[in-house]
Design a protein around this nucleic acid. Structure first.
Lengths: 196, 196
DNA sequence: TTAATATTATTAACTATGTTAATATCTTAT
DNA sequence: ATAAGATATTAACATAGTTAATAATATTAA
């Protein structure tokens, strides 16, 4: 009888979707069990019939959002594009995606959820990193990077963008730099790296 | 009569030092007004005679910690060193400092304190960034970098390290990479950048 | 030195949080 | 239709940040 399981799954999505909506509207800090319950049309305590705690619920949101980001990036994939241009597009659009959705970045990368609960299947990483790797391989074929540098270049680009996102979204220290200014900087960095 | 001001300042440091101790021992998440009061030997409510709220208190801790980090890095300054070696030392030691003090990193870079209260003087940035810039200038003089690349190289290095720290300390996604492995990667990245 | 006053600290209280236990409600099989 | 099981809700607890009312202490004026 897995009609039960289907209903259970459906209930979970009610709470997950409510949580996602609250996160995007009011931010992850403003989310509470009570609000999620209310928005889903159930009592707050009902959540605990479907999730061990709200961190578990937040992990589901996290993976959902990550998949959204991947799909967004995929929409910028274009075989016809020059390899370097494709790489530039991926990196700048990735930055833009999170810069425009700071609350998602906060949940995915900087919120302190405890350890990932066992029961949550970490999706086989429909991975943004793969898109980046793919673009970089194409870049070497086109002569923008050297074969042996792919690994380190990929690492460098990825960690740089995430570092910039962290600074941008926390806006500490950072003296009023706009998203567009940072995007220009990302372009300059890739230009610099591919200029060998 | 600024005997008053001196006493006031002293009281503030009691709370700040207590907060710093709690952060290092139990983490920023475990900190509470009650604990800080207790540790400082006062009632929890007394804090509010000296700080508008605990976020203000945390900002004081933040700048204290940042200064500590700067001093730590300064202890690795060595005029005799080869320019590239000095750059490598700064970057890897900076990473190591926070990798070994994750709770400090959490407070300084990823905790969500509200906007910086006006009354807190943001120290004229006794800045880590300056040390990095200095080392990079020396590197160009020694021929490791080209003059026009300093800006972008500095940005790239700084954001990459912070990105790596974020991943390391949040240990999401990251598949069990050790601090030493990441340090090796940082070295490889700088090697790569200076290899022009 | 003592009385009045201003300053500073503490206790009590309020609202909100996550979570659990006890209770109520609904579903389903007989 | 009713008993049994599953599911949802209300009540309650511990802890949080913060504020107001009160107590204690230090300062000043006589």
């Amino acid at each position: 009888m897995d009609k039960k399981e289907l209903q259970r799954q459906r209930m979970k999505t009610y709470f997950i979707d409510s949580a996602k909506a609250i996160i995007m509207e009011e931010g992850v800090m403003a989310l509470s069990a009570r609000k999620v319950g209310e928005k889903a049309g159930y009592s707050y305590a009902t959540i605990y019939n479907y999730f061990t705690d709200i961190n578990a619920l937040l992990y589901y949101c996290l993976f959902d959002f990550l998949e959204d980001a991947y799909k967004y990036l995929l929409s910028y994939r274009d075989e016809a594009l020059d390899a370097k241009q494709q790489l530039l597009t991926y990196t700048t659009e990735y930055f833009r995606y999170f810069a425009e959705r700071p609350e998602i970045f906060r949940l995915v990368f900087i919120a302190s959820l405890g350890p990932l609960p066992e029961e949550i299947a970490h999706n086989p990483q429909v991975s943004v990193a793969e898109l980046l790797g793919e673009a970089l391989v194409a870049c070497t074929k086109a002569g923008y990077f050297e074969e042996g540098d792919i690994q380190v270049a990929a690492e460098l680009i990825a960690s740089s963008i995430h570092g910039k996102l962290m600074f941008f979204i926390q806006d500490r220290i950072l003296d009023g730099e706009t998203a567009e200014m940072i995007i220009k900087m990302i372009e300059a960095e890739i230009e610099y790296m591919s200029r060998k």
